[in-house]
Design a protein around this nucleic acid. Sequence first.
RNA 1: GCCGGAGUGGCGGAAUGGUAGACGCGCACGACUCAAAAUCGUGUCUCGCAAGAGGUGGAGGUUCGAGUCCUCUCUCCGGCACCA
Length: 726
Amino acid sequence: MADEYNPKEIESKWQEEWEKSGIYHAEDDSKKEKYYALIEFPYPSGDGLHVGHPRPYIGLDIIARKRRMEGKNVLYPIGWDAFGLPTENYALKTGKDPRVVTKENTDTFRKQIQSLGISFDWARETNTTDPKYYKWTQWIFLKFLENGLAYKAKMPINWCPKDKIGLANEEVVDGKCERCGTEVVEKEKEQWMLAITKYADRLDKDLDEVDYPERVKIEQRNWIGRSEGVLIKFDDIEIFTTRPDTIRGATFLVVSGKEDKFTGKFVTNPATKEKIPVWEAEYVYSDYGTGAIMGVPADDERDRVFAEKYNLPIVIDYKKADFEEFGKKVVKYKLRDWVFSRQRYWGEPIPVIHCEKPARPDGRSGGCGVVPVPEKDLPVELPVVEKYEPGPDGESPLANISEWVRVKCPSCGGDAKRETDVMPNWAGSSWYFYRYCDDKNDKEFASKEKLKYWMGVDWYNGGMEHTVLHLLYSRFWNKFLYDLKLVPTSEPYKKRTSHGIILAEGGEKMSKSKGNVINPDKIVDQFGADTLRLYEMFMGPFEQAIAWSDEALAGPRRFLERVWRLKEKIADSNVEIPAILHQTVRKVSDDIEKLGFNTAISSMMILANNLEKQEKISQEEYKTLLKLLAPFAPHITEEIWAELGHKDSIHLESWPTYDEGKLVDDEIVMTVQVNGKLRATLKIEKGQSEEEIKSLALGLPEVKKWLDKEPKKVIVVPNKVISIVT
RNA sequence: GCCGGAGUGGCGGAAUGGUAGACGCGCACGACUCAAAAUCGUGUCUCGCAAGAGGUGGAGGUUCGAGUCCUCUCUCCGGCACCA
């Protein structure tokens, strides 16, 4: 038969057509209401796409497509978060220029993603490694510097000996490098820091304003670690406690190892006026609170263990104190400032110059010290190097390029050196969502007018693993830029959701080393992109991790074949639209908003099965099904739409609506329970009275059988249940 | 230890307190076919010939009615963790 469903043919055809007509391009000057849908832009690794990557893209594609059909001006962009270690390590191994590697990888990724028919606005594609992009990453860094939020400090940092790289606290998991799993060690090093702690209170409090999953809010709050307590002086030692009421039970103080000059001394408990000893212990941290605590063995488990071990007195049943009786209330956070330096190559150079004449401590002229690169000289481009190895002491590979490093001080003209540290790969992703709003701008990172129109992001979907990394960092940048009046909203994302990852068959994580990675190209080739899209949305709840199954792909493909075949049943009759169509419109519309893609698809399957059983179907029924399906399976629906004689794309049609009054069938099946047990079903007509229904139910032979006396009570739940109690 | 989330057929999973297992996969049988694939139809929680009984990790409870609400408990997953 000539008219077979052939995805290979129709999919590439429509993809080209859509790109040519630009129907997915966001309009900057539009009277329409805007809608900004965002996915976390991918890191283009050398392994190419695996089937897990597109799950969030497809999910938000359905949202974006539905919004367009609802008449919104939709921005659904994509770009590449391309700085980072894997590319650099690959360059190290092969000697290839990371720029070339990145170009190859993004080309592969782009081609693969484009084969899935996702309605990204490719005209706004951005890349964090493009100097035109990272010029603005550097520019924002200079704003941090200018406002005193970027500073250099010699401090113990988390050092990964394998990657030869300093890590932010957020990148250390169980004492190991988040990336490679190597045990991190402490290392003293001069580092650039960003003062995220200055925003700790607002990062915590403003979570109240946004629509994030509760879990994400809790994890962020956990990480920020706000606690209210009191600072109390025991002679020269100030302690922090959240339980000042227990002060009369304090029989000793404990200081961290760094404060050990007090160890062995005695101080006065301001509440009891007794002299109590000062001890030193590892369980007290130097960088939290004041680095000193009061030991209340009667009320605190650790203090009790400590007191028992060292035979310290334990006072019970002491009188409680008032909260601020002995000191003043303060708020402390667990959050630490962000280590922002990386001594590697493939990142944004930190745009500062170190003048050889140090700045004078009194701030008067004579020396410059750290000098920001003037804005006109941005971007500071990464020079081409021969060797990508970090130096023996963990110096950046850039430190070896003396012609790049040696510059004149922009301030005094004297000899100076460039900063050779680069930024962490979280830098470019902390602001990319602004760039999409105005990606061609070479005067600003994005114009205020365009930001005002497009921001904030209406719906942002991404991985749970970024809750305390990317999500917290980008909220911090946003708040900083908001304070400078450079961006219009105090929070970047109105709504955040998370997708579950796709696991390999058998439930293991997909990884190259395990050899269980599934390439979407294979699936597209064999089944078509529409089947892949449908399957990824149908396989299970969107927000839940789920194992891939090759076998199960057949279901969605059969469904599409069925929809395809329904063409032949179209009749030009003007039939009354049955209730099931209204129900399906409602179900699909509602489910999409709840990320219930699996149940939305299931209801469309039911509708298709239903239509197939009919002799003939009306144009109206079929077109409605196609429109509902269009966001899920954009190619096949477009093809059929065109075959039905339409000149314009189905994706420009308006989203179907339903009639509230026609949701219920004329005939309803109710269940009849006797003492809670199901005994019969009862067919009734729409609109029958409760009394009628009751007597019909009581008259059923299957019911009479169980009634040996007058029922005590009969409960009728409209359209559902008749419950008889004897 | 603390804070979240989840336990439902052979499998993925459905179910505003109202017929548990929708939808899909798989499997079985049947139709079509020389045959196979594809497609279509029927069946598919357990016990029972049937009437019926039991069944959503376990034990109680609330309710006319509980997978869903409450109490206790077990297991798994995620986050935080000598954070005062």
